[in-house]
Amino acid sequence: MNETPYHVHLVSDATGETLTSVMRACLVQFDGVPIIQHRWWLVRTQGQVDRLMEGIGRHPGLVVFTMVDPAIRQALEERCRELGVPVLSLLDPVMEALARLSHSKAHRQPGLQHTLDEGYFDRIDAMQFTLALDDGQALDRLSEADVVVVGVSRTSKTPTCMFLANKGIRAANVPLVPEIDPPQVLLDLKGPLVVGLTRDPRSLSDIRRNRLRIMNEERDTTYADLEAVEREVTAARRLYTRMGWLVIDVTRRSIEEVAATIMQRLAMMRGETGL
């Protein structure tokens, strides 16, 4: 296998989130291919184009950009052609298709997706809500949630809720504790979507054991004991079935996949056609 690295330059007139996500999705399909990423964010002036071209000149390679300002992107494309490096606009195919569909023109204004609009403040509100109702806190506000995530310890409840909050979804989570009945307010809940997370007991036992090791917790405990974990998981699943809650096995799913499943079900509840 060729060990010489390939250089890829990611150029954005905003925060680069779109480029970063797309590149991450693409690179996992090229396992073992050595790629060095160079990130150039908030490129909005000719002077910034000059500086990034110096970097591209030192490490020639594929240039992928999401710049929308016509003058700045033209300067970038012309300079790349002069250097003989390939250059690709990530947004053009979709924007052109939307323009044809809607018979309208794009604004071509950098950073519009990050403006302080209503959606932005919804996300901030959701994040504050999720932090306030993390790990069974403020149960009296549970009915205000869009989604309530339930599960035994170490089933990724908090990271899932934080991901949902970043999408503007008010998510709360309630832990299931052995030998303790679930809070009645949870069992009586009517409005929010309730989701029960579960995990393979052996995998969960390993995760808990590693957690104890990291915390230097050496006392005798059933927290990571496989038989005890199996009983916890079984009891949790019986509760989910009895309550008719959506059940998601997180054993082989990423946080993003779990959240996507929840958002899809939430959209169906709300009568929406998409996420």
Rank of each mutant, 00 (worst) to 15 (best):
V64I: 08
G84P: 11
M268D: 15
R58F: 05
T130M: 08
A97P: 03
P110K: 05
I262W: 04
R231Q: 09
V177K: 13
D134Y: 02
V64M: 02
F121E: 01
Q37L: 13
V177D: 11
L88C: 05
R211V: 09
P159G: 08
V85N: 01
L83R: 11
F129P: 00
L98W: 04
P5C: 06
F163K: 05
F163W: 01
I35T: 13
A97D: 05
T130V: 01
T261F: 02
L176N: 00
L91W: 07
V185L: 15
I169R: 01
T273K: 12
R209P: 02
D134F: 00
T222R: 11
P178Q: 07
E218R: 05
V28M: 14
P182E: 09
T66F: 01
M23D: 10
S153K: 08
G151Y: 03
E230Q: 14
L112C: 09
S89N: 11
R265N: 08
V149I: 11
N210W: 15
L239S: 09
M95E: 06
T115W: 10
M23G: 05
D92F: 15
T45W: 02
R237T: 11
L98C: 01
L197S: 01
I169S: 01
I180R: 04
I56C: 00
T241Q: 13
E230L: 10
T20L: 14
L204I: 04
F129L: 06
L90R: 08
M95K: 13
T66H: 00
S203H: 11
V258I: 07
D125I: 05
M67F: 08
M1Y: 12
R252E: 15
L226S: 00
D200T: 02
I35F: 14
L186R: 02
L239E: 05
L164I: 02
V33R: 10
I207Q: 01
H9I: 07
V63M: 15
M127S: 11
L62H: 00
S156H: 01
A172Y: 00
L76V: 01
N216Q: 14
S143H: 12
V148G: 03
M53Q: 08
A224N: 07
A259C: 14
D200M: 06
M127Q: 09
D122C: 12
E230C: 12
A138D: 13
G32V: 05
T160R: 09
D69Y: 09
R202A: 14
L88I: 11
W245S: 04
G32T: 07
V33I: 11
H59C: 13
I207H: 02
T160Q: 08
R231H: 06
M67I: 12
P86L: 06
F121I: 00
C161S: 02
G57L: 09
T221A: 12
S203M: 13
